[in-house]
Design a protein around this nucleic acid. Structure first.
Lengths: 126, 126
DNA sequence: TTTTTGTGTTTACAACTGTAAACGATTCTG
DNA sequence: CAGAATCGTTTACAGTTGTAAACACAAAAA
């Protein structure tokens, strides 16, 4: 299987819209992004086009418009981006990375509970 | 105080060398990076120049060469990059982000212990 | 002092990004 | 069917990035 291409900041936002709906038209993407980003419809069209050329999106023609769908799961992109970040900033060291996040955000009690649960799970698997 | 500029992948590597030594000459950076990246010395010089123009590096002239030093701490850049990543990929949701990392890496027992310790600390602060 | 050498600065250039207008084809609509 | 509306595709353009050679200047050596 092919590897997911890298996405730019703007491309991530477009992909997210499409993942959330499994598939959709350009028009839907434009409308979904309108509140957040102040993009001209033309800009979104450019991004869709680039994403398709990069191999991140497939589409199927229905009447006049296209219906776009992701060529990779969000998880595939997420994993890749996460690894890239981990190495770029923390030299691949996981614990310092997590420590950084935990300490720089004020976690709520339930969040802490949730993370402890995840760790316990992890410990069990070993 | 000014905000730290954004760094590209390559620029991060250069900055890391300089943070590790507090300050150093271009020559040192070139040598330090030689084993990792197969960069021509000219490439490193370009990066140093850009980093200076971006305001990420200061320097002081000593004889012929410059001694570069960071204009911001590594922590400042790290925090910024971490926030950017968190929002771009996880929409700012911390727990899912941490869960992702914990689950996608096989943590060693001591690492799990370490993270639990950090969480306990965090819980206490509240 | 003239030459050489080591440094930083300029210039180069293609690929990628953010933004968006212009264009061309296709499908409604009158 | 011709004109209008709608889509996707092309073209545009400046800024960033990865890579690196060319150039200029100061310092060291001959």
């Amino acid at each position: 299987m092919k590897k997911a291409p890298r996405l730019s900041e703007a491309e991530w936002q477009v992909m997210k819209v499409i993942w959330r709906r499994a598939s959709c038209s350009a028009q839907e993407v434009i409308e979904a992004l309108a509140p957040n980003r102040d993009w001209s419809p033309a800009t979104v069209k450019t991004l869709l086009n680039r994403l398709h050329r990069k191999g991140a999106l497939d589409f199927e023609k229905t009447g006049k418009a296209y219906i776009y769908s992701p060529a990779f799961t969000e998880a595939e992109f997420t994993t890749q981006e996460a690894e890239s970040f981990l190495h770029r900033v923390f030299d691949g060291a996981l614990s310092p990375m997590i420590a950084h996040f935990v300490q720089s955000h004020r976690l709520s009690r339930p969040e802490i509970d949730e993370l402890e649960r995840i760790l316990r799970e992890e410990r069990k698997d070993k």
